[in-house]
Each structure stands twice: as C-alpha cells, then as structure tokens.
Amino acid sequence: MALDDKTMGELREIAGRYPEKRSGLLPMLHLVQSVEGKVTPDAIEACAQILEISAAEVSGVATFYTMYKRHAVGDFHVGVCTNTLCAVMGGDQIFERLKDHLDVGNDELAEKRQGDQYSVSLEHVECNAACDFAPVVMVNWEFMDNQTPEGAVQMVEALRAGHDVKSTRGPKLCTWREAERVLAGFPDGRVDEGPSAGPASLAGLEIARERGWKAPDAAAVPVIEKGQADD
C-alpha cells in the first residue's frame, strides 16, 4: 500500500532540511519505519521518488545500516550488547537467557502470546557507548544499564504485559515505531524525563566535589602575550 499523504509530506520536509535533499535519506528511512514498521518496498519507492534517485540506490542504503529492518520487529526491540566488555561482564549470559526465554534466535521476533499486550524482538548489538554501566541492554534504543539475566527476563515480561517500564537513564519506554519517529527528527516531548546523568557518569565528578578539585581559576593563569612565549 502506498504511503499516505501525511507521511509523504513529512518525508519531503526531512529532505528539505538539507542543502542537497539526498542527505535526508537516513532520517527518511527512520520515518518510514515508524509508519510501516519496517522498510517496505513501497517505502523504498517513495524515498526514491522524492529524492529522484533509483529504488536500487535507496535499497543499497537501507541494507547497509543495521537499524533498518526488512522484517517485522517487536513493539519493544531488545538489544543486548555482546561486544567484548559487556559480554565479559555478563552480556553473553543475558543474551543466552533471553534467547532461551523468548525462544528466538538473533534478530527475531518472539511470539506474541495470548494475553500479551505488546510484542518483543531480540537482537545482539555492538558497543552502545555505555561501557561504564556494563552489562547494558538497549530497549528501543533507550539505556537499560547494569542488567542481569533474571532482571532482563522480568523486564521483557513486564513489557509484554503492558506495564510501564522506565529507562535507567531516560524516560518511560515508548514503542519502537514512536522511537523511530524521534530519530527522523520529530521530537516527542519526552526530553525532560530521566536524569542528567547515571551514577557511573558522575563517579569522577563526585570525587572532585568531595575533595574540592576544580579546573584552574582562569584569573590566576598568567596571560601569555603573543611573541612573549618565544623569548
């Protein structure tokens, strides 16, 4: 089914943010995922038409980046970091446990059981820049820090049951489609939820505060005039 007028308008709006419209392709593909739930053939045609490039060129881009999906994903897409640091800290055990619990392989959608409010899919992801909170799980690209296998199972069950689950460093989790819309550049008003920083982020700052450590006082640093330093 072709994309609706609203979506086509928003796709053109994204392309219009850039000096050359093709630059909009990555956020445009995020937007079509928020509407279609994946990158569909119709979505590829729509992007190609707006950007005046071939469908093959759009397809080539859509298949290069791992966040673009050609198959259905869950309302909540769970990514377990299994890069070395997180794997060693327990990410491997979390991923194994979730695969077993959800009865899926990598990048697969778990069965939506009778009574489940939402569906869940599972993927192992690469380093997500939260190593000081290892082992880390991402849900719809929000941080779930310092996870355990048991905690991760409880979390996916809470998500399936439709309970509110909050990111450890962010807002209440939204659905994957809602997340994709934010990535396309359409904010959802959740920016003020969640903390400024997680506990690990503040480890050094807390020590500095305790001990009164600061960067030097600018007024106390002698100003070196140009040329003087070479004398």
């Binding site: 400024s196 920083a197 050094g204 700052l205 001990r211 009164g212 600061k214 960067a215």
Partner: peptide, 13 residues
C-alpha cells in the same frame, strides 16, 4: 593542577 578538573562534566550534577 588538581587531579580531576571537571569542565565538561561540571554541569552533569
């Protein structure tokens, strides 16, 4: 200079 020098992180708390 102090051992830690929060500048960029100084806002985080």
């Amino acid at each position: 200079t102090d051992m830690l020098t929060p500048v960029l992180t100084d806002m985080w708390d």
